[in-house]
Each structure stands twice: as C-alpha cells, then as structure tokens.
Amino acid sequence: MTTPSRIALALAGVGKIARDQHIPSCAEGADFDITVAISRNGRIDGADNFTSYDEFLEKRRDIRAISLCTPPDVRFEMAKKAIASGFDVLMEKPPAATIGEAEALRELAEKAGVVLFATWHSRFANGVEPARQWLDGKTIRKVEITWKEDVRRWHPGQAWIWEAGGFGVFDPGINALSILTAIIPGQTIVEKASLAFPENRQQPIAASLKMKSAEGAPINAEFDWRQEGPQTWDIVVETNSGLLRLAKGGAELYIDGELQVEGPDREYARIYSRFAELIRSRRSDADFQPLRLVADAFLTGERHTVEAFIE
C-alpha cells in the first residue's frame, strides 16, 4: 500500500529497461510505489496489471503519475492520452520519435497543467554534474566523443531499433549527446555527419558527427555498434585549464588524468528523485536538444551502405 509520503505510479512497458532499472529504482527509492503495470507481454508482481492502455486509463483514474518505458514510436499517443487524463508523465529516452512530437507534448502538458519529464538517464551519471561545474567559466577548445558498444550484447532481439523511428546507433549515441548538452553551455550545432547503414536495415549501425559549440569549439563524435571486447563510452574536453574526461558513460570523471569522481550506478534512482521533486513543485523538465542533434545528423548526413547485420 502506498503511504501518504509516496506517490502511486503506473509503469507502461514492462521490458528489459523497466526490469533492469525502473522497477528496482522505485522499489529501493523513497518516492514511488509501482501500483499499476501496463504491458502486452510483461507483468509486475504485486501491481494491478493491464494489457490494454485504454482500459487502464478508464479504470484507474486514482493514479496520477505514469512512467512510459515503451519504444518511442508509440510513446506520443500514450503520452498524449495520459496528459489529457491529467497524469504527470515521465518519458524514457528518447522522449519521442520526432521533434514535432516532443514539442507538441510539451505544449499539451503546459496547457493541461501537468508535469512532463523528458528523462536523459546519462545526465544523472556520477560525473556529469561535477563535470558541468568544473567546466563553468572555462574556455572549451575541443571535444571528442567516442561511444562504441556491441549491439548484440546490449540490445539482443530488439528488432524495433532497426526500423524507421528506431534510432539505430543513436539509441545509445543520444546518451552521449545528452551529456554533451548538459555540460557544454549554449546550443550545439551539427555541421555534417556520415551514417553507415547495413544493407538489410533501416537505421544506422555507426555514425560520425562533426559539430561545434555555440562559441565555435570543434566537437567530434564517433558512434559504433560493432565494438567487440571492452566497451567505450568516453567524452574528452580540452580546455584552457586542463583536460576533462568522462569515462564509462559519465560514471567516472578525470581531470588531467586524475580520478575525481566514481561510484555505483545511481542514474535511475536520481531520475525518480527528480520526478518526485518536479511533481511536488509542479514544474516540468523537457529539454529536447539531444533529440534535435540526432535529427540534424540525419538532415546533414551522408548515407553509406555497409555489410548486412545479422544478429
């Protein structure tokens, strides 16, 4: 039973990310109880489980907050209905399939007076906020992003990521872009991109982006889903006062080679703490710059066909 200090939450989409992150984070945290689950295939023990989203909206009007963990191609309609029903809404990344959808949801939430939280989980990694603080006031000379992982290891059997609207390598790559836009002030500009599409897929397996900061500092990013062996999630920022490196997806922060910050993964625990804070203060947090950078990469990108990807 939810206590007065805790918030009853519905969770839509009981897949891998929900089981790995959302469910344990809520169970271990101080703010939310998952009292309802909506999924065609998954269930949560102890929750009121629905297979129909519309049935849930009709029967559980007592729930006022929902976490959407579905693939982005169906999230717009689900979020739109939730907002119309008066729910405060948390959206797993990427928050929508297009910029138009994302901005429409932001406007709808504002008009309805509900909270909209577009999460970027990598922004909540241990080293990201300390990195932003260290960079504040410094001159940024260059940024290099290397984000390479094995798609077979991290996204097994997830065919939707290869379809139109599935993002391909930008599904993990947008995590790097979310960190970049959190620690570098102003708007980041995509100048050109090179996108590698397997001959049997609709989304890229690798991408190279040439960007620049609002102040003109060059920013280069390499994304690849074909990495074997050790996985690489690094962001290196050269400044007038030293070299900053975020490693392991932002979990570790180094300044001039010296480890400054490390610790256990608390990204999703911090996401839910932030959602509770937003609900209680009745404020939204809906930044779509990482999504815009992905869209700009497709707009400016040269398409290259590479060998077929067979899982």
Score class of each variant (00 low, 15 high):
196 A>W: 09
268 Y>L: 13
268 Y>D: 10
172 P>K: 00
263 G>P: 02
281 S>W: 05
199 E>L: 09
117 F>H: 13
295 A>E: 15
97 A>V: 12
120 W>T: 01
93 K>N: 07
30 A>E: 12
237 V>H: 01
77 E>G: 12
19 R>F: 08
299 L>M: 15
218 P>T: 05
105 L>K: 08
199 E>S: 15
290 P>M: 01
279 I>V: 10
225 W>K: 04
76 F>C: 02
273 S>L: 08
47 A>Q: 09
203 Q>C: 13
308 A>P: 08
309 F>D: 14
171 D>H: 14
28 E>R: 15
42 G>F: 03
288 F>I: 14
28 E>G: 15
220 N>S: 14
308 A>M: 07
94 P>S: 08
63 I>Q: 09
286 A>G: 01
215 E>K: 11
192 K>C: 05
58 E>C: 09
77 E>K: 13
80 K>S: 15
43 R>F: 12
15 G>L: 05
257 G>Y: 08
243 L>Q: 13
166 G>M: 08
235 I>L: 04
121 H>Y: 12
179 I>W: 00
133 Q>E: 14
203 Q>E: 15
248 K>I: 00
257 G>H: 09
275 F>Y: 02
153 R>Q: 12
147 W>H: 03
112 A>L: 11
4 P>N: 01
117 F>P: 09
281 S>Q: 10
226 R>H: 10
33 D>E: 12
170 F>I: 00
135 L>H: 06
8 A>V: 01
93 K>M: 09
30 A>V: 07
170 F>D: 00
201 R>L: 15
193 A>E: 02
73 D>P: 14
230 P>E: 08
52 S>P: 04
224 D>W: 02
87 F>G: 08
130 P>V: 02
91 M>D: 01
